[in-house]
């Protein structure tokens, strides 16, 4: 099962490390990362495989949302199906 982690906010040191560190801790495997910094705004989209995650999905959402608040960025963790449903026929 795949999920999409998006990180949006003001660029600062260690965002990628913080998010990937949290993922590694709970067995969430990063499949692909795209990242850009536009006019100081950081936007990262991370595709992750959560089939071997050691915690329930809702806990992962809470954990990363909290991490985002700590880092001053907005982190969304969403099941990939929502994007497939809305953008693919």
């Amino acid at each position: 099962m795949n999920a999409v982690i998006t990180v949006l906010g003001k660029d600062n040191v260690g965002i990628l490390a913080a998010v990937s560190g949290e993922c590694a801790k709970v067995g969430v495997n990063i499949v692909e990362v795209t990242q850009s910094v536009l006019q100081g705004m950081f936007a990262m989209i991370m595709f992750v495989d959560i089939s071997n995650s050691t915690i329930p999905f809702s806990e992962l959402v809470d954990m990363l949302t909290e991490k985002g608040e700590e880092k001053g960025v907005k982190i969304h963790v969403m099941h990939e199906d929502i994007f497939n449903a809305m953008h693919k026929i």
């Binding site: 999409v4 998006t6 949006l8 795209t34 936007a43 989209i45 595709f47 953008h87």
Partner: peptide, 16 residues
Amino acid sequence: MINSHDILETINMIDN
């Protein structure tokens, strides 16, 4: 693969 524009569009719809 889902493209990043679509992902950001959905997030923007929900957030803003």
